[in-house]
Write a protein that binds this DNA or RNA. Structure first.
Lengths: 349, 349
DNA sequence: TTTCAACACGAAAACGTTTGCGCGACCCTT
DNA sequence: AAGGGTCGCGCAAACGTTTTCGTGTTGAAA
C-alpha cells in the first residue's frame, strides 16, 4: 500500500537536491559518479519510475492518441483499433477509445473532453448522425487548435486533414463488373441510405459498372435499407420479388441476410444466386456457404492512420511551423472468392 | 492554430491574478459579481477549458481506467469493452485500451507503462501465456501500490482483487445435462488445453454432468485443441472417427468448425448431430444453421467490472483506509436455442 | 476618530518533473 | 599568493491548476 516514490522523497532520503536526483537518473555528466550510482541504486531499489502525468504536463505532450469510432462491437472497427494499437505501441503511444454510438452529441462531447490536453491527436471515423447532419464544427475547432486529426473510412471532404480510405467506388465497380463479365444479368444491390459515405460510394460504383457495360439500371433491383436491425423481412421480400441471379451487398450483414433469404425463397447459393459482400469479417468467413467478399484490411488501415498521425506529431516537435500538406492514403482492396459465388473469371471475355 | 488558452493568459489579459480567474470560473463567493462575470464572459469567448493534465497532476487522479485484454478482434472482448466504455463514460471516466496479444511480456510492459500515474485503475483479462506461466507478479505489484484491479473472465485465484466471471463450470454442466436429458448418448466435447482457465472450467462442467447422470466418460469423445488457427482438420477427423450424436464446444469457433466438419462427413445438423457452442457472438447468430449456444453477456460483464472499479476508486476518496473486501460477481448465463440442436426440452424426464 | 468586520483580491504552495544557470570549493598555473 | 578553470551540486522557473492564507481597502458601528 506504499504510494509510488517520487524524486522529492528520494532526494530527502539521500539528502541531496531534487535536481541532483533527476540528473543522476538521466545520467547527466554534471553529477559525480559517486552520487550518480548511489542515487540510481536507491531508485532501482524502490522501483522508481517517473510520473507520466508530470512529464506530460512539462513536455506538453501526453504520448496518447484518441480513437473515436461509432461502435466497437464490429469486426472492421475492431481490426482498425488493433492496427492502431500495434503501431502506437511500437512508438510509445497509448490509445484511448471513445465510442460515439453513431451519435453526433457523443462524438462532440468526447472530442471536447479529450481536446483539453489529455491527448496529442485524434484518429476517427464519423458517426452516421454526424454524416447526415453534415456538422463538423467540433472537428474543425480541434484542428484549429493545432491538434492533428486523421480520419479513416467514414470521412468527409468538408474537413482538411490526413485521411485513410479504401476506394469504395472502385472496389464496388470492380466487383460488379466482374459479375457482369461472368454473364450475370440481373445483378441486384443491397445498400444503405445515401448519407453513409461509404454506402453512397459503393452504390455509385455499382451504378458506374452497369453503365460502363451498357447494362440498364433497374431501380427495382436496388434495395436501400433504412433500419439495419430489422432488414431481414425487407431483404426476403426483395429477393423473392425480383429473383436476381446475383446480389452485391455493401456489407457483410446484408450479404449473409440475403443468403438466408435466398434459401428461404427456395434458391440455392451459389447455383441459383451468387452473392458478393463487402468487408472480410467473421461472418463472411464462417457462414455457410462462406461469402465471397471485398476485403478491406482494417489492420493496415489502422496502422497507416496511426503512422500518419504519429509522423505529424513528431514533425511538430522539429519545426513548429509544419507544412499543412494533408495526404489521403488509399488502401488496396481485393476480392476474396469463397463459396457464395460460382467461380468468377477475371477480365472481359 | 492558436494554442489553447490558459488561466495565466486570461489573468494577464484582464489584469487580475490567476487565482481570481480560477475562483471566478468556479463561482467562488470570494469574488465580486463584477469581476466574476467579466472573467466568465472572457473565458467563454475564448472557449477556455481547464487543462486535464494539470488537473490530473493536482488531484492525483486521472479519471482514466485501463483495459488490458488479450485481443480486440474478438466479439466477446469487444462487447466487454463496450460495456466498460458505457459506464465509464457515464461516470466521467476515459478508457485506455492495451492489447497483450496473449503475450506475457506485453501484458507486463503495458501494466508497468500505465501504472506510473497515467491511470487510476485496471480492468483486465489474463493472456494465455500469463495463465500458463502462472506468473502474476506484475499484477500483484500494481495492487500493492494501491491501484485497484478488476479481473474478468480469465481470472486467477492467485490474486486477491475484485472479479467478474461467469460460472463456466455450471453453464457447461447445465448444457451437457440438458443434452443428456434429451436422450443424447454420445456427447462429444471440443475444448482447449487446460491452462486456459475458462476452457478448464467448462471441461470440468462437462465431466461433472456426465458423472452426475451416470454416463461413462469416454476420453475419445474429448478433443483438446492446441493450435486454434489450424483446428479444422483435427475436428474433421474427430467427428468422422467418433460419430457423436451431440457436440459440446467451448467456444463459437469450435462449434462452427464442428458443424462444417459434420456436413463434410455427410451428417446433417441438427438431425444427425446436435451442436452447442459457447459465447453468443456473431458466428453463432449468422452461421447456417445458426448455433445454439451458451450466452455470456459481455456488455453486462464489462459494465459490472467498470462499476466495481469506479466504486472502489471513489471509495478511496472518502476514507483513505478502505476495507479490503474483494468481491467476485458471477454473471448469469443462459442457453440460446437456435437451429444447430433439435428442440431441447428442459428438466429431467 | 478609532476599531473591527466584511469584502475583494493576490501571493504562494502544491502536484512531480526537467533543465539552465549560478555558486562555492578545489586544483592548477603563473 | 592571486588568478582562472573545472567539478559537483543546488536554486528556481516552468508546465496549468486549485486552494489556503494573508492583506489592503472600505464602510459601519462604537
Amino acid at each position: 500500500m506504499k504510494r509510488k516514490i517520487t524524486l522529492k522523497q528520494i532526494a530527502k532520503e539521500l539528502d541531496v537536491s531534487i535536481s541532483t536526483v533527476s540528473k543522476s537518473l538521466r545520467d547527466s555528466p554534471e553529477i559525480s559518479e559517486d552520487t550518480r550510482l548511489k542515487v540510481q541504486a536507491f531508485a532501482k531499489l524502490y522501483n522508481y519510475k517517473p510520473n507520466n502525468i508530470a512529464l506530460s504536463l512539462k513536455n506538453r505532450k501526453t504520448k496518447t492518441i484518441a480513437i473515436i469510432i461509432p461502435e466497437i462491437v464490429h469486426h472492421f472497427f475492431a481490426t482498425v483499433i488493433s492496427g492502431i494499437e500495434q503501431v502506437a505501441g511500437e512508438n510509445g503511444y497509448n490509445v484511448i477509445i471513445c465510442l460515439s454510438d453513431e451519435s453526433f452529441d457523443k462524438e462532440v462531447i468526447n472530442m471536447e473532453m479529450l481536446a483539453n490536453g489529455s491527448i496529442d491527436g485524434f484518429i476517427m471515423s464519423l458517426s452516421k448522425e454526424t454524416q447526415s447532419k453534415g456538422d463538423f464544427h467540433h472537428i474543425i475547432e480541434v484542428i484549429n487548435q493545432g491538434m492533428p486529426v486523421v480520419m479513416f473510412d467514414r470521412v468527409t471532404n468538408d474537413i482538411l486533414c490526413d485521411k485513410v480510405i479504401i476506394d469504395d467506388n472502385r472496389a464496388a465497380f470492380d466487383s460488379v463488373e466482374r459479375l457482369i463479365n461472368n454473364g450475370f444479368k440481373k445483378i441486384a444491390m443491397i445498400t444503405t441510405v445515401d448519407y453513409v459515405s461509404v454506402g453512397k460510394l459503393r452504390t455509385e460504383g455499382y451504378l458506374r459498372a452497369l453503365r460502363a457495360n451498357d447494362v440498364a439500371v433497374d431501380e427495382n433491383l436496388i434495395l436501400r435499407i433504412e433500419d439495419i436491425d430489422n432488414c431481414a423481412e425487407d431483404i426476403e421480400r426483395f429477393i423473392a420479388a425480383n429473383k436476381p441471379d446475383a446480389v452485391f451487398a455493401v456489407n457483410e450483414l446484408f450479404a449473409v441476410t440475403a443468403i438466408k433469404a435466398a434459401k428461404k425463397a427456395g434458391f440455392d447459393v451459389p447455383s441459383d444466386i451468387s452473392v458478393i459482400g463487402f468487408t472480410d469479417g467473421i461472418i463472411s468467413k464462417y457462414s455457410s456457404p462462406s461469402i465471397t467478399t471485398v476485403s478491406q484490411d482494417g489492420i493496415e488501415m489502422g496502422g497507416k492512420a496511426a503512422k500518419m498521425l504519429i509522423q505529424r506529431l513528431e514533425m511538430e516537435d522539429a519545426e513548429e511551423e509544419q507544412e499543412e500538406h494533408y495526404r489521403t492514403e488509399v488502401i488496396e482492396t481485393h476480392l476474396v472468392e469463397r463459396e457464395s459465388t460460382t467461380s468468377l473469371k477475371k477480365g472481359n471475355f
